[in-house]
Amino acid sequence: MKKVITFDKSARQFILDTFNKSIDQEDYIVEKDNPGQRVLTSDGEEIKLDEFAGIKKGSEVFIKSDLVSLIKLSDDLKDPHESVR
């Protein structure tokens, strides 16, 4: 996994600032210039700061940190020819 930039939880705010995002009163990630607009994952789920695992290419696809989301990410990153599913 060479094509990766990692960050620890302490640097999440920097990443969110970079992509012009902030946090609303309920801890959901929102658009900084439109705080009523919560950021969604590719499954259409809103995402709390604690659940935020990262971003991948494709109009800024936000990723959750739960196991099921990471499995989906693993499949998305995998060569389709070697997938078991």
Binding site: M1, K3, V4, T6, F7, D8, A53, I55, K57, I63
Partner: peptide, 8 residues
């Protein structure tokens, strides 16, 4: 490149 939390 993927941006990802280290633990994830």
């Amino acid at each position: 490149k993927l941006l990802i939390v280290d633990k994830a």
